[in-house]
């Protein structure tokens, strides 16, 4: 393919050629802002200034209320994982980042639970579909915690223990009948 070269001639006359005037005009704008903002800033009236950037990390913008954050796995009353390894969340996950290996539980009232539960936070697109899909309120994304930085990919894969460490008791119930509805006479 032929390269297209567009030649722009320098403007005529030394005034325009030196760009001196243009530079000074620009500096003038900056200086004007400075003069307007720094006294207010100094007097602690930053809100009245024109500054739109934040002094991160001293200042942080609050997240919107719908912010999700890191996943966590919820617990039963006895501290066991609520997840029943139903595979709804890996089925719903568009990023294929949830891996579950189910196993049989000795407790016949539980029957099935995850032996391995991993989420690859590097792949996760934080869509929340896993939470929507879960029929047991076993997985939540309500921690608001950023995925922490890591230097190795493997560190970004959260395992069952880590996900459970942020977990709490969930008393969500099935079919609107109340907790332990099976036990009720």
């Amino acid at each position: 393919m032929a390269t297209v070269v567009k030649i722009v001639n320098r403007p005529a006359g030394w005034k325009r050629r030196s760009y001196l005037w243009g530079t000074m005009q620009g500096l003038g704008v900056t200086f004007g802002h400075l003069m307007r903002n720094w006294p207010r800033n100094l007097l602690g009236r930053r809100a009245q200034s024109d500054i739109v950037t934040l002094a991160y990390p001293e200042e942080k913008r609050p997240y919107p209320p719908r912010n999700r954050g890191l996943h966590r796995l919820m617990k039963r009353a006895d501290g066991q994982v609520r997840c029943v390894a139903c595979m709804m969340c890996p089925t719903a996950c568009p990023a294929h980042c949830i891996s579950i290996v189910p196993e049989e539980s000795e407790d016949p009232r539980i029957e099935k639970r995850p032996r391995v539960f991993q989420i690859d936070e590097l792949r996760c697109v934080v869509c929340g579909l896993c939470v929507e899909a879960c029929p047991c309120d076993a997985i939540r994304m309500d921690t608001g915690i950023h995925a922490p930085p890591s230097t190795r990919r493997a560190d970004a894969i959260l395992d069952k223990e880590e996900l459970l460490s942020r977990g709490e008791l969930s008393v969500a119930v099935q079919a609107g009948e109340g907790l332990f509805w099976r036990e009720r006479k």
Binding site: A85, C86, M88, E111, K112, P135, Q174, A175
Partner: peptide
């Protein structure tokens, strides 16, 4: 029982 989440037939 509507065990569908843990039922192999689901």
């Amino acid at each position: 029982p509507i065990d569908c989440p843990i039922c192999d037939k689901a």
